[in-house]
Amino acid sequence: MILYYDGSLDGFICLLGHAVKEHLPVTAILSSKKPASVALFEQERIIVTDPDWAATVAGGLHKKLGQRFMRELAQAYYSEEKEIEHDLLHLVRRALKSGPGVLGNLADPLINRVASAAQKTGRESHRLLGLLRFRRLIDDSYLACCAPRTNAAPLTGSHFAARFQAMRWVILDEKRQLGIFGTTDGWQLCTDVAIAPELLQHAEENEIATLWRNFYHNISNPDRFNPKLRRQFMPKKEWRYLTEMQPEGASASPSESESESESPSPSMISKQNESR
């Protein structure tokens, strides 16, 4: 049987609930956002996302399998590895049979795939904690753009909510059109976030960015110059979003910069389809 769902974490949790409860013989799990080629004579079913049912299922799994298992599940899911949903369904079935300890069986191919997928997301979300760069916008909010390989941005929400308590801030995953909106009392995830083209930075932004670049270049010790080592820790593909790696004045005026590095203002970002 092929299961279709809407590609959201809630949708996937609903799918887990149905598949486990009804003992569905699942052969493939497909996100219905992507058009799929359907095999003949295969049974199909479309799973409808129901946030209440998702919460019930997640609560039940949490009770049976524990916090660590749920975190591993979410991180592996957010890795967006090919067919990870199918692996995760198998993993949940095995864990329900023999306990969350199955995660320790790291030499098992299935567990190993899930563990390395989870590790990939976990590692990238930790990197985002350091590498996200916020810019102050004219409405006094702070915006950071990114395009992570995994869907790691939502995992950084509570970190920034704790440290930027009195600030309004947004993390925008440009690849997935996801926005994490920080408010004075927490954060929320919004999908289908669109960017307005004309955006304005705060007057002090250029000056602070210049000071930071100034610091960045002066803290390096020329006698130890080792660009290869730097690229090992901070690959070039990540430089696009880093203030210190931009030539002087590049991110300065949004009107001159390319549309990719455009700076949207949260007040100018339209939120649709709010979830969570």
Binding site: G130, R163, F225
Partner: peptide
């Protein structure tokens, strides 16, 4: 309450041209 928290395992924010 205010600005900032310390992170137990520490966080690297960038790497300078000497790789540190």
């Amino acid at each position: 309450s205010g600005l900032g928290v310390a992170h137990k395992s520490g966080i690297c924010h960038s790497w300078s041209a000497d790789g540190r």
